[in-house]
Amino acid sequence: MLKIPDKNRPEWKKMISGEIAHNYKNYVLQMQTTQMRRYIKNKKLTYDEAVNKLYILSYKYSRAVKSDLEQIFKIW
């Protein structure tokens, strides 16, 4: 796996809240980000829980999402 930005970076939460309106190129992360937003809206998850799920999946697919993360996080 490639190294990805630390989970404590504020960008992760902003991706879920929509403050950073990034459209992933990778399908699973498109779907998961969308679902995390629904969970937050419907109060089924906290932001910390949603960030954790997004982070785990981004780590698994670190190669596929590398260019997406570079656009969002710039450096890490």
């Binding site: 990034h22 779907m31 969308t34």
Partner: peptide, 9 residues
């Protein structure tokens, strides 16, 4: 066909 935007999908 209806279309929805799922974070870019």
């Amino acid at each position: 066909i209806l279309v929805a935007n799922y974070s870019g999908a």
